[in-house]
């Protein structure tokens, strides 16, 4: 499936509470970046559009997958890490199960310390979900909450193992 189709579908899903004239299509919103989509919504007729339209720029980011393999991808600013994983069809088993709605913590990624610091504050809701992530570290974030910016060029993200990967070990443990 082409990534542009994916994009349209994603937008379809992400655009809630928009104002719809009968002839309008949801496709119109696809020019907007996905992080902070709420800001682009019109609620009860009140336009809460507060962000100027940013031009999207390319950044390269590097994943290290669960087998330790490095995967470099080019992505657009304004997308979340989860968007990138989906768009690029990166095969991380079970990643992003709740589609970025802060209900699952399966989009857990581990960052380098300087990048972690650079990203700044984390919402309480994200921290609550992070608490439930498997293999949590001090520089863990949820991929669906991290938005790509130009200054993250070259960032390195480790995708930690999941409980499924660890299952064999814990089985051995629990049976001894």
């Amino acid at each position: 499936m082409s990534s542009s189709l994916v994009r349209v579908l994603l937008h379809r899903a992400a655009v809630a509470r928009v104002t719809l004239a009968p002839h309008q299509t949801l496709r119109k919103t696809s020019a907007l970046s996905r992080c902070g989509s709420v800001l682009h919504r019109q609620i009860r007729g009140i336009n809460t559009f507060t962000l100027p339209l940013r031009t999207e720029e390319k950044v390269t980011i590097n994943f290290v997958n669960r087998d330790g393999k490095k995967i470099s991808v080019t992505a657009l600013t304004g997308n979340s890490i989860l968007d990138v994983v989906v768009d690029q069809n990166l095969d991380f088993d079970g990643f992003g199960a709740c589609e970025g709605t802060l209900a699952c913590s399966t989009c857990h990624v581990i960052l380098e310390e300087d990048v972690y610091k650079k990203l700044g504050s984390i919402s309480d809701e994200e921290m609550d979900m992070l608490d439930l992530a498997y293999g949590l570290t001090d520089t863990s974030r949820l991929g669906c909450q991290v938005c790509l910016r130009k200054d993250l060029e070259g960032m390195l993200l480790r995708v930690p193992e999941t409980v499924a990967d660890a299952r064999v070990d814990s089985q051995q443990e629990s049976s001894t």
Partner: peptide
């Protein structure tokens, strides 16, 4: 469900 999973999955 594209967001959620890759093809294979």
């Amino acid at each position: 469900n594209l967001l959620q999973h890759t093809y294979k999955q």
